[in-house]
């Protein structure tokens, strides 16, 4: 499958508008390309601007400057708490069909098919009638990924999807995302603190901090060039963090 640059940023400036005139710039100039058919892991310390970048790409906040081109829609999975405990897994995934359904949200055969396929792809089809509150943390996260899949967008962006999961679920989610990108050609961007799994399962890493430009490469390239060591070396503690 040929890889395509599906998000392209040139000199992208991200941050928040704090009042009518003032802005808080988190990162002044970012250049990157997000490729289809790959899992890209976004790594960086707290405050580096990972969440701001994710929110900018997802359209939750507007870019402050620069150029950002996105080909197609984005399915999104966030860490924020939802009030979806009283929805069944099927109801939740059906929300992914919001744009495809009409005024009253009635599901057509196409929509049911997309929902069933999404549930099967993440391996929770047997839980479709269960309430979200009855699921484990890992299963809930899979349901959110299924919702993003049902959106049928070429891009899926996830903000720390494995943050509250146990080790087994972390690996499961990463493997799931990897197979979705490789088999369905989706561009998957994951913001994470989980370096081990990012290096192991990510096709590409983006290293982000406030001082330098965003550094991008395969885990092997970044490891061989010493960039990973340098990026995660803590001068304060004198050891890898």
């Amino acid at each position: 499958m040929e890889k395509e640059a599906i998000i392209v940023a040139n000199g992208l400036q991200i941050g928040y508008k704090t009042s009518h005139r003032k802005t808080n710039v988190v990162n002044a100039s970012l250049d990157f390309e997000l490729l289809s058919g790959e899992v890209t892991c976004l790594l960086g310390r707290n405050g580096a601007g990972k969440s701001t970048l994710i929110k900018t790409l997802c359209g939750i906040i507007s870019p402050l400057g620069g150029e950002l081109r996105i080909k197609g829609g984005i399915g999104m999975v966030l860490t924020e708490k939802t009030n979806a405990g009283g929805l069944t897994v099927y109801d939740l995934v059906s929300l992914g069909r919001y744009r495809q359904t009409g005024f009253f949200g009635a599901l057509k055969e196409d929509d049911h098919l997309a929902i069933r396929e999404s549930l099967e792809a993440v391996g929770i089809a047997d839980k479709s009638g269960s309430y979200m509150s009855e699921l484990s943390d890992g299963e809930r996260q899979k349901a959110m990924v299924a919702k993003a899949l049902a959106q049928e967008t070429p891009i899926i962006i996830l903000d720390e999807p494995t943050a509250f999961l146990d080790v087994t679920s972390r690996v499961e989610i990463m493997l799931l995302l990897r197979s979705l990108s490789h088999e369905k050609g989706k561009a998957v961007l994951i913001s994470t603190h989980d370096l081990d799994n990012a290096v192991k399962w990510g096709d590409r890493l983006w290293l982000m901090d406030k001082k330098t430009a965003l550094r991008s490469g395969t885990p092997e390239e970044l490891n061989a060039s010493g960039t990973l060591d340098e990026f995660f070396y803590s001068p304060l503690k004198g050891r890898m963090i």
């Binding site: 929110k55 997802c58 939750i60 399915g75 939802t82 929805l87 109801d91 919001y98």
Partner: peptide, 15 residues
Amino acid sequence: NALLLGESYAANLGV
């Protein structure tokens, strides 16, 4: 229904 997921998700879904 979309707002049950919070405003960020709702906006992403197209609300």
